[in-house]
Simulated assay, not measured.
Amino acid sequence: MLGYVLLLNMVTLLFDGSVATVQRSFSPFVNPAGIAISPGLEFSYLGSVHGDDTSHTIGLSLGTIGFGTFITGDSKNYILTGGAPIKDWLYLGSGYRFGETKGYTIGATIKPHRFLSLGFVGDNVDDRFLLKSGIGIRPGTDRITLTFDLNYDIENDSSDYLAGLRIEPFDGIFIEGGGNKDEWKAGISVSFGKFGVGGKYGKIDETESYDAGIVLSNERYPTFMKPKPSFAELGMRGSYPEFERSGFLFEKIDAPFYRLLSRIEELSKNDACKGVVLELKRTKMRMSQWEEMRNALLDFKTKGKKIYVYSTYYGLGSLYLSSVADSIFLHPSGEVWIP
């Protein structure tokens, strides 16, 4: 049990591994729901030296399935997890633990706001129960993340906490630190896009600890390395509601139409994006939406970027939108409707 708790702290302190914010290959060890937030293929390795003890942690995510192993001395522990998005703000996951320790885990991640994330996990480890909760806050910027996790051991009626801070002063450069009254760690991690490395130094119960890790991913992380300029493809199909959910802290900006506008704004700020190829697939929007979309593309174009539009059918709205494009393409058997 002690080794398992130490593992949680190492993963949380080295990487962005709060119960509330963990994703991809780190999620099996911390919160199985995190694997459903940003599915993809990813491999991670963490090597740790704590006094005379060494350990190795390996994580793997494949879509919404995760696998992890924790090896220290002759002890080997494994976990197999799976997750699913229930809503675009709610993710659930579960896992089975086997090896030296056995048990199961269930978790949930709630993201009611782009700057707020909540996580909850229930762990059964060798018939002992642990409850974990966490909160992640980005105070008005994506460059700073504050986390706070609380762990409660039901059998021993004991609890501990872990506070963390993650700062991204430049794209792909992360300065991180965290701890509690008994331990602390601080260090840096660097992203090269689909490959990242990180290292930290700290103390646990007055014993020095060293950690180093790598990440290989098919999904690109933010990086200081500028990719080769290219065109982005953006497909528009069906309708785009402006209001998708409501309630406390739930904002309309997460509705499909506003996600579309946000995507165009992101591309306009991306120096690696030369332009956009927009494919209209029987898109149904109100005239006010076509106009707002056109204004967003006009702003996109002022950044010196190109716009190309392709469709098999052009109606009044799509023709109005396409009037901002550098070139308009129609399928040979396509149609154009002008009232």
Rank of each mutant, 00 (worst) to 15 (best):
3 G>E: 09
6 L>Q: 11
7 L>H: 09
15 F>R: 10
19 V>M: 13
23 Q>L: 15
27 S>P: 01
31 N>M: 14
33 A>H: 01
37 I>Y: 07
39 P>I: 03
40 G>F: 11
45 Y>K: 00
46 L>F: 03
47 G>R: 10
48 S>M: 05
49 V>A: 06
52 D>K: 01
53 D>Y: 04
55 S>A: 14
58 I>A: 00
61 S>E: 14
61 S>F: 01
61 S>V: 13
64 T>H: 01
67 F>W: 12
76 K>Q: 08
76 K>T: 12
79 I>M: 05
86 I>R: 08
86 I>M: 08
91 Y>Q: 06
92 L>K: 06
93 G>S: 10
96 Y>G: 12
98 F>S: 02
100 E>C: 14
107 G>E: 14
109 T>C: 05
112 P>H: 02
114 R>H: 09
115 F>M: 10
120 F>N: 10
122 G>W: 07
125 V>L: 07
129 F>W: 09
133 S>Y: 05
135 I>G: 03
136 G>R: 07
144 I>S: 11
148 F>P: 00
149 D>I: 02
152 Y>I: 01
155 E>V: 15
156 N>T: 04
159 S>N: 11
162 L>R: 07
166 R>W: 05
167 I>T: 04
178 G>E: 15
181 K>G: 05
186 A>F: 12
187 G>D: 13
188 I>Y: 11
189 S>I: 03
192 F>G: 07
192 F>R: 05
195 F>Y: 08
196 G>P: 00
198 G>R: 03
199 G>C: 06
203 K>T: 13
203 K>L: 08
209 S>F: 07
221 Y>K: 06
225 M>D: 00
226 K>A: 13
228 K>M: 14
229 P>A: 11
230 S>D: 14
231 F>N: 14
231 F>M: 06
233 E>F: 11
242 E>P: 00
242 E>I: 10
242 E>D: 09
243 F>N: 09
254 D>Y: 03
255 A>P: 11
256 P>K: 02
259 R>Y: 05
263 R>W: 11
267 L>A: 11
269 K>I: 12
272 A>Y: 07
272 A>H: 12
273 C>V: 15
275 G>R: 11
281 K>W: 09
283 T>P: 09
284 K>A: 04
295 N>I: 08
299 D>F: 07
300 F>I: 04
303 K>R: 02
304 G>L: 07
307 I>G: 01
308 Y>P: 00
311 S>A: 12
318 S>P: 13
319 L>I: 13
328 I>F: 05
329 F>C: 06
329 F>P: 01
332 P>T: 07
334 G>W: 13
338 I>T: 02
339 P>D: 10
